[in-house]
Each structure stands twice: as structure tokens, then as C-alpha cells.
Design a protein around this nucleic acid. Structure first.
Lengths: 268, 268
DNA sequence: CGTGATATTGCATGTTTGTGCTTGTTGATT
DNA sequence: AATCAACAAGCACAAACATGCAATATCACG
């Protein structure tokens, strides 16, 4: 039987609780679930899916809508919640970015709000290892389960809110990662990746060099711009994740440099 | 239980204890177990498997579901609970603790909710340097101005939510601090300071050894108790900060060991 | 060597849980 | 208003389950 669901454990024979966990996970990474899709994915009737959604909704873990469900509406802890609450566009960007992640990979995640959104959207069931210099990202992931976290230490730069500098670079050079998510201050199809701070740039470069592939996820304001310090050439970037409304010409320019361009979904 | 004939561990002829260990391993590696599969694998009836799962679940080592079992859900809200407790008694404790801090000092702050409260209560105007293994504390301080932060990296322990282990210990040994705030699981006037986790204890010890003076701030439930692993003797503790309603006899016991005892103010 | 206590297992028993199906009902869309 | 998809509630069936019981094995101790 041809299995359409790639990269996932045999979802077709999962127990109800496990199924519900998967649904919650999909809710986190995709922002919504559709009953019919889940039904096909798990190979159970839509009734069972609806029962699952009903239970989850009863526990306040999701919000049922006609056709499926949405993530539970966040209500409490204004201060802390605001930090994890990312705007629609950034959230869509993150959700597209996490589709590049495969099971069991080691991820190198730089600091920055976009990357914090990506970390929040990561699936718990992939057995991921995350190497990060950002206390914020480390904290986000350590409050969830299923992540192996390696925190990069060193002097915390006040503006960036993460460890940069010699010690952090050294620690990064001691590890290997599959995928790298360097925060980008600016990226240009011809001139590559740029940063504002000289030490920050050294760290990003170390991250990229310690990783197999590099994924750059940026909001539109960083496209086609440059900054003061160069991080890497465009050849070092394999994937670019952009917002849905980025012009075709811009996407083509990156594609011409062998960068796979991924467009996020339009925001609701 | 001494079992004479334990030559080769064959799945088909395993004692219940062995079998349960096997099940736990599979749970860890596969993320789930199915009763029918285990039954076939060990060549016992599903009833026996169910009995095993029942016992394991009773010990909190797994979560039974219809058809098999899933890994035990780690206690999901230790951090969120503790974060809310920043009000009231813990806040008063923290306010008293920070009165021991002098301008320009280097502080070594361990992870833990009490220490997070202490970090929150630190003055911005003292030109302090804070060394911490806690992403949470690093983040609290990096969102404010006037702090020099040195983040201790390493593998993040999920239960503690901070870096412990060899790498963290090594990094700590490379710095010197004036004041150390080790998180305490238990403290006793005669037996000293105690922790729950062996690796955690090594880190606390390294912190204390790297610091001039040690301040232990504890809520009343940790006084006069001991835990599994010893961190340090009471001689290594110079200051103890306790809540306002701790009995005179307890305070005197610590004072007799040359520990300066500080009482927090009564909560409003 | 025998015997009773304990432990473990498989089986038979009713019970519970999950599932798909059917029947109406509600909701969204034209 | 009309139409169809999604939904809730109830039903029936099968699989998984708890419980009690008997058979067997193991071990301690007389």
C-alpha cells in the first residue's frame, strides 16, 4: 500500500492518545487541522477524529471549528505569553520553515525573534537536538518535551540577548549540526548574508560552517538589503523561506543561485 | 532478586523484571509499545504484558493507553507553577537576599525558582556581573539594562531547565565570583546542603568553590531536611536567608555554625 | 526429601473502550 | 431559500481490558 505520509511514524496504526498528541503537534506546527486530512492520515473515520477533537477541546487544548480545529486561544500570562506570541506573518514563516526539518536531526538555531518562532513551531515527536546560543529559545524548548538542548554559553550581548563572542564560537566549533538557522539582518541574492555586529557575524559564520545545510527565514524587510558585516556568500545558503507576498522576480533571483525558495502560506 | 540462570537475555524466556526493563527501553526508543506486539516478542500472553504495564504505570514509569502504553508524561508544569509563585513569600525572600549584594560584584546564580526571583530583584545600578547556568535567569536579566551576563552552556537537563554536567562545570571553573547563590533542595544546620541529582550537585559544588561567599535562600519547606546527594557542608555557607516565620531555635542552630541568618520581611 | 508459601502464568468471566455506521440536525455557501 | 458538508447522538460490534481462579514453578525451611 502506498503511504502518502512521509517522514512520520506509521500514523495509520496509532492509539487514540497518541493520535491526539499528533494532532496537537500538527496544530502547533501548521496552525490548524482539517478533520478530513487527519482522517486520511491516520486511516480512521472522520468520526474518530471528531471524537478526538471533541476531547481535546474539552481539555481546552484546541478550539473546534467547522471542518477541523484551531490552536487553543491563549488567554493567560500576558508578559510571558507575549514573548511566545508571534505576529501572523512571522508565524506563517516559521511554520513553513519547520517543514524542512526531518526526524532526528541536529539543528543549530541562532537567536532572534524569527528563530524563536521557528523553535516554537518545531514538532516534539521528531527526536530533535537543538543547539542554540539563545536563552529564550532554550527556555521555550526546555518547557516542552522531546527536545535535546545544547546551550551555547558565553558573554551575553545585551542588544541581541544571546551569547556571542569567542567562547560561544569555540563551543559551536565543537559540534556538528544537520541544519542551521542563522538569524539574518539582511540577505541579498548576489551579495549573500549580512549582519550588524562584527562579533555576531563571526558566530553566525561558525554556525553555518558547523552545519550541513543552511536555512534562512526572513521577513520581507530584510530581502535585497545589506548591512555592515558579511556573514556568508549566497552559495552557503541552501534554503530561503520568505513570506507569501514576495515578488516572483526576487524569488527567481535567489533560485538562480541554487537557493531553494519556500513561500509561507498567506496569513489568515 | 538473585536469579541464577541469567546467561543470555533471550526475549522469549525473560523474568518479569527483565521484561519490564525491556519494555521501558522500547518505550524510550520507540515512543510507544503495543501489548500485542510485546506479547509476541516475549512469547507470553497479553495478560502478562498487561500486568507488567499495570505495574510500570503504578510506578509512574509509563502511561497506559488502550492497546499498549506511552512514555510517562513528565510532570508538565513545574516551571509554570513556580513562576507564578514569584509573588508573596518568595518575593520577600528575594528582596532580603539581594541586600547582601554589593556594587560591582560578580554573582554566581544557580537555576531554580527562588533564584529567578532573586535575579528579578537585583538592582540595575550596581554594575553587577551575573554568571548563571539558567536560561530563564539569563533572559530575565538580559531584558533589563546594566547587567553583565555570562551564560554557562552545556546540555540542558529537562527537569531542571538549566545546563548541568561536565561542560557546565568546566565553564564554571574558569571564572571567579564574589557571591554564590546555589539553589538548595534541602539544608540542615548539621548536615549541610543537599540536592536531588548527582550531576546537579557537582555543578552546585563547583559554583560554591568558584565563589568567595555563599548565600543560601530557602523557603521553609527546605529547612532541616536532607536529600539524596550532599552538596556542601554548612561551613561552606556564610549566609542563610529564611522566611520571617522561621522559628528562633532553627535560626539559632544555623547561627551556632557561624552562619549569618537573615529573616525576610513579613508578607503583606 | 518433603511441604507449604510465594510468584508467575494462562485461561474464563464479564466489563469497558474505541470504532464505524446510521439517523437526524446544524452550519456554511450559493 | 436551497443545498450539501460537517456535525452530534445513538447503536452494534469487536478488541482490549480487569478480575478471579487454577495450574505450575521456585524457593525457604523443617
Amino acid at each position: 500500500m502506498a503511504k502518502p505520509n512521509v517522514g512520520k511514524v506509521n500514523a495509520s496504526e496509532a492509539m487514540p492518545q497518541e493520535r491526539q498528541q499528533w494532532i496537537l503537534d500538527r496544530l502547533r506546527s501548521h496552525g490548524r487541522v482539517i478533520a478530513a486530512e487527519l482522517s486520511a492520515e491516520f486511516d480512521v473515520s472522520e468520526d474518530s477524529i471528531r471524537r478526538d477533537l471533541r476531547e481535546l477541546a474539552a481539555q481546552g487544548l484546541c478550539k473546534r471549528v467547522y471542518g477541523g480545529a484551531l490552536p487553543a486561544p491563549a488567554i493567560s500570562t500576558p508578559l510571558k505569553q507575549r514573548r511566545q506570541e508571534h505576529t501572523g506573518r512571522k508565524l506563517a514563516l516559521a511554520r513553513k520553515a519547520v517543514t524542512l526539518v526531518r526526524q532526528g536531526q541536529v539543528l543549530m538555531i541562532d537567536s532572534g525573534s524569527t528563530n524563536a518562532a521557528i523553535a516554537s513551531a518545531l514538532s516534539e515527536h521528531f527526536g530533535l537536538t537543538v543547539v542554540t546560543n539563545s536563552p529564550e529559545i532554550a527556555q521555550i524548548l526546555s518547557e516542552r518535551e522531546g527536545f535535546e538542548i545544547l546551550l551555547i554559553g558565553g558573554r551575553i550581548n545585551a542588544r541581541i540577548g544571546a551569547a556571542i563572542g569567542a567562547q560561544a564560537v569555540q563551543e559551536i566549533q565543537r559540534v556538528r549540526a544537520d541544519l542551521c538557522f542563522p538569524g539574518a539582518c539582511a540577505i541579498d541574492a548576489d551579495d549573500g548574508l549580512w549582519g550588524f555586529d562584527s562579533e555576531e557575524v563571526l558566530l553566525k559564520r561558525a554556525m553555518i560552517e558547523a552545519s550541513g545545510e543552511t536555512v534562512v527565514a526572513v521577513t520581507h524587510d530584510k530581502l535585497g538589503a545589506t548591512a555592515m558585516h558579511r556573514v556568508a556568500g549566497i552559495d552557503d545558503v541552501q534554503h530561503l523561506v520568505v513570506e507569501h507576498d514576495v515578488e516572483q522576480a526576487v524569488r527567481a533571483a535567489f533560485a538562480a543561485h541554487n537557493v531553494t525558495v519556500h513561500r509561507a502560506d498567506a496569513v489568515a
